[in-house]
Design a binder for these strands. Sequence first.
DNA 1: GTGTGGGCAATTTTT
DNA 2: TTGCCCACAC
Length: 698
Amino acid sequence: MNEAQTYAVTQGKGPMLVIAGAGTGKTRTLVHRVAHLVEQGVDANSILLLTFTRAAASEMLTRARELNPACADVQGGTFHSVAHRLLRTYGESIELPRSFTIIDPADVQQIIKGVVAELGVKQKGDRKFPRNRTIADLISKSRNLELSLEETVFRHAEQLAGYLDRLERVAKAFTQAKRDQALVDYDDLLFLTEELLKTQPHVRKELGHRWRYILVDEYQDTNAVQARLLEWLTTEHQNVMVVGDDAQSIYAFRGARVENILEFPKRFINTKVVKLERNYRSTQPILDLTNEVISRAEEGFAKNLYTEKTGGVRPELLRPREQKAQSRQVMERIRELLDQGVRPKEIAVIFRAGRDSFDLESALRAERLPFVKYGGINFVALSHVKDVMAHLRVLANPLDFLSWQRLLMLLPKVGPKTAQQIIAYLVDLNSPEEYGPKLASLPQATKYPGLKNLSELFVSLARPNAEPIRLMEEVLEYYEPICVDAYEDYPRRLKDLKELPGLASQSSTLWEFLADTVLDPPAGEPGEVPADPLTLSTAHSAKGKEWPHLFVIWASEGRFPAFAAMDDPQAVEEERRLMYVACTRAAKSLTIFSPQEQYFEGTGFRRLDVSRFLDDLPPEMLKKPQKGPIFPVPEPSSPESRGSMSQARPYKVGAKVSHQAFGQGKVMGYKGNDKILVHFGSHGLKTLMLRLANLSSV
DNA sequence: GTGTGGGCAATTTTT
DNA sequence: TTGCCCACAC
Ligand SMILES: Nc1ncnc2c1ncn2[C@@H]1O[C@H](COP(=O)(O)OP(=O)(O)OP(=O)(O)O)[C@@H](O)[C@H]1O
């Protein structure tokens, strides 16, 4: 710990703000402070650590425990998960039903869909009517920004202004539908908790006593209601430490307010402000690049990070012709690193959007290189997984008609109408013991034989204290035949379902399991968790992490920044910060790929420029492919003809050449037309793709 | 009312 | 590649 870090770690009571750039040890300081407090005799139970993801919380707590085993009892989680726990305990005092369940964005969209149909606000053939997803995002945005829907539409979706009155009706009906079914969405968790703390002084007091120290990581990405929650939780003692970096604020799109961190000292009087400037993560060449990237932001961030690490390689920009060539080149570079003895765990590939890695994923699978992927679609959003979860959700919440509808429609000959008719009989259900008998005695029971099986399932599921894994096993046994019937591609889906018991076994109660799957969806693809995988991650999901060797792909205009962001200057600035976050994850090497072309349905290939965030950087900061046709050998015009064009053998056998990673070596020969054999003193004989190696003569 | 197949558009980021 | 709408057959 350096001096500034030590100061932050050892400060006594009162508010503190650590605001500093990437890799300066903010998170580490937070962890050490937790351990320090415990060392000083603070009860671990009375410390609350709030983080951006639950994974971050458990990682930090693990690190704290390594410093001091007594940290095991420190409380941690996201704002959402802590809010959930509070509502489970105290929710009844604000008239929240005990049986409330949390819904995910897909459920929200389902409810919106139902509401739109019910209100009849969408005219037939109206092509411009916003998608359910768009409406859901808009409503959430207006809540998080705490603006009226009108204001939100006006600012962020002007093209929908004509639908405003209808959208308002949809929003209202959506709120009512949630209330009727005791459903709580992500935003509700925060706002209901605020209501709880605001209206229930005894709860506030109790919590003020329970949590004497509150620490928050990534504070730049919190929204207005989260900041208020923090104030409510700390009114009693003001022992609050927040850390963050305004230059890394990347969630404004969902209502995060960078003002939270900037104005923290105003909200908490006598705040001690700590700034850190020494970077412990990256080499100087990487910092030179990232400092430059962020210095070009409109806000003019004054970041001046330095390191005492010496040496390091210059970040490099490569311009593959298109997606396939990009994947090939990334694979090639990864192979080189692995050949040098780098572990896959030390390598990550970062990109803007979840789908940006699809092509690379197939390449990795073909080469049997194991990887984990963070970001993009998640496992619990798969429709067959949701089918299964619906059966468990109604066990917890009898009023969850959304789930009833879903599971009823799985029965043969039951569609939306029949499901609604059946649901009309289910409204007075109170507890799972009643489900089986009720379903069996339904007037529709004879006409729809599926109801009998369902009834039997619920008879055996009606065990209030059963472990989630047991319940899961029963539901799966029931559901698997349905899955086979319902989906053409059932083998793949059955394979996914096999992962569910494992997931369920990690929670000890049904409530916990349901909340966990929604609040902490398992990352990436289900199944085998490889021992030493490469990491693929969206830039958002990479926040707060680091890897020795980093590749950023699709750094081209239209992809990063995304087309969708390009006509809103504020969105472009957020993309810039996102690029900064991406690049600052690198410790030792940073290689950026910017494909020159992208294929569009219909119009074919279109040229893409280098991302504006990286354009015009001096070659001292970013090594670029040489311009001009001579060298490196141009990409073949189509993947099929690969190799056949590179006739050039630019180095004589025996010539001395230099390579970015391997240093100096001697050309030993060629392999085919596109591979060169070079002997490097320290690294031995290497076969390199001529096109990618970027050798230079010495 | 339910099930199915064709056509067509859209596709950022996440607790 | 998915997901949604629509028209049509049972
Ligand atoms: N005083 C120190 N001595 C040695 N290593 C340190 C020190 N402080 C931080 N580090 C290391 O620097 C790296 C970055 O630290 P950390 O993740 O805490 O930074 P951060 O400020 O939270 O970064 P970011 O904002 O980019 O997420 C980590 O590998 C950490 O172990």
